[in-house]
Design a protein around this nucleic acid. Structure first.
Length: 412
DNA sequence: AAGGATGATTCTAC
DNA sequence: GTAGAATCATCCTT
């Protein structure tokens, strides 16, 4: 993400004055102090309000008439991009409202401020959502800081210049009569010029915020590969429920929890997986076999230990509540499938048990036939390309009435 | 750098 | 609302 100061750069903190009345802050480089990433904006060299003030004050040496005729009048004419269509008041009000809404002006918003752009990431928030969120806020805060700093400077400049003009008028009043109306007119002119500058500053600030927001919205597509564990967990489930790889909501939640991802990401993953598997089953054959083998190994371990202990309720070391997949043999899904098979004498997760038993049979009986011998092939998918028996998800994911609990027994 | 893998988004159909 | 399909954008391996 770019530095906000750069975001504001194209408009030079908003007030890009030509002809010698440059924008920016004096000590107000658009870059935020302490930000190493701050890069001077491209294009014209940065100006600062010091220059602005200097040039404004340079008018001091001119007569009032000269000032009116030259620099002062030149001010607004040289301001870039001022929109003349709207009444200034309405336009200003719009900008003010916008800045207020974005949390740039007004009291600083904390936590639940404008950064909705990030928080409201559709389709599930990324893992590091909070990081991006805080990053967004940090950038917004920088913009806010720059904005207020600039605003203050322009207000100060306005006030100083007004004072100066008043002094000039006072001096002139010794030589010629000056009506209060004339004074008022001059003050109005000055304020008008400066409010135009302020408006441009506000406008550019708004633009900067908009750009910042859009950058963060674009970041939605930014992705990070899932952790190995997450992929493992998802694949375990997918291949052990290959006959009906449609996890229930509960199953998704469990998978999400185990994988450290969101439910939406689980849904996305299964959506992608189903379609990609179907598209190119050959490619996934090896993967399917790997997970089948893993399942089988786990299953045999559990069975063996279960037999030894002669008690299904006696967990072995691998299934003793820890589903940490520290090695290829640990798979809570497999354990779940197997243990649910063991502990569910009747009914329950029939298809899942079938899948797992399938693996066991292959592994214990004729594992050598697995490799290169499609365990999971089109037999799982009908002629229409649909998964068989898609109408029985609950029986698949609900062993003994506890559907998706992919780790129903595993987490205990 | 190229190309495949992969997570996310969008559109459509149901 | 969900799933399938297409697509995009990024990551990762070569």
């Amino acid at each position: 993400m770019e530095d906000p100061s750069r975001l504001m750069a194209p408009h030079g903190a908003g007030v890009a004055l030509q002809g010698g009345l440059p924008p920016g802050g004096p000590a107000a480089p658009t870059a935020t102090p302490g930000d190493p990433s701050a890069v001077p904006p491209p294009g014209p060299p940065p100006h600062d309000t010091g220059d602005v003030l200097q040039q404004i004050m340079a008018i001091t040496d001119q007569s009032l008439d000269e000032a009116q005729a030259s620099s002062l009048n030149a001010l607004p004419l040289n301001i870039r991009g001022i929109q003349e269509e709207d009444p200034p008041d309405a336009q200003l009000m719009r900008l003010d409202n916008m800045l207020l809404a974005e949390g740039v002006s007004g009291p600083e918003k904390r936590g639940r401020g404008a950064p909705m752009a990030v928080a409201a990431t559709p389709g599930g928030c990324p893992n590091d959502n909070s990081i991006e969120h805080s990053d967004y806020r940090a950038k917004l805060s920088q913009i806010r800081q720059i904005y207020h700093s600039e605003l203050e400077k322009y207000e100060q400049a306005c006030s100083e210049f007004t004072t100066h003009v008043m002094n000039l008028l006072r001096e002139q009043s010794r030589t010629r009569p000056i009506s209060p109306k004339e004074i008022e007119r001059m003050v109005n002119i000055i304020h008008g010029k400066f409010s135009t500058i302020q408006m441009q500053l506000k406008q550019s600030t708004c633009e900067a915020v908009m750009i910042l927001r859009s950058r963060f919205l674009d970041a939605r597509r930014k992705r990070r590969n899932f952790s190995k564990q997450a992929t493992e967990v998802l694949n375990e489930y997918f291949y052990s429920h290959l006959s009906n790889p449609y996890p229930s909501e509960e199953a998704k939640e469990e998978l999400a929890k185990k994988g450290g991802i969101t439910v939406s990401q689980v849904s996305n993953w299964f959506g992608n997986k189903r379609i990609r598997y179907k598209k190119n089953m050959g490619k996934f054959q090896e993967e399917a076999n790997i997970y089948a083998a893993k399942t089988a190994v786990d299953a045999t371990n559990v069975v063996a230990q279960g037999n030894r202990a002669n008690s299904p309720s006696t967990p072995n070391s691998a299934s003793s509540g820890s589903f940490k997949m520290t090695n290829s043999g640990d798979s809570f899904i497999n354990l779940q499938s197997l243990t649910s098979y063991q502990s569910s004498p009747v009914g329950g997760n029939v298809q899942s048990q079938m899948d797992s038993l399938h693996h066991v049979i292959h592994q214990t009986g004729r594992y050598d036939t697995i490799v290169g011998n499609p365990l999971y092939t089109t037999q799982r998918i009908d002629a229409n390309g649909s998964w068989q028996d898609p109408t029985t998800p609950s029986s698949i994911t609900s062993p003994a009435g506890d559907p998706g609990s992919v780790n129903s027994d595993a987490s205990n």
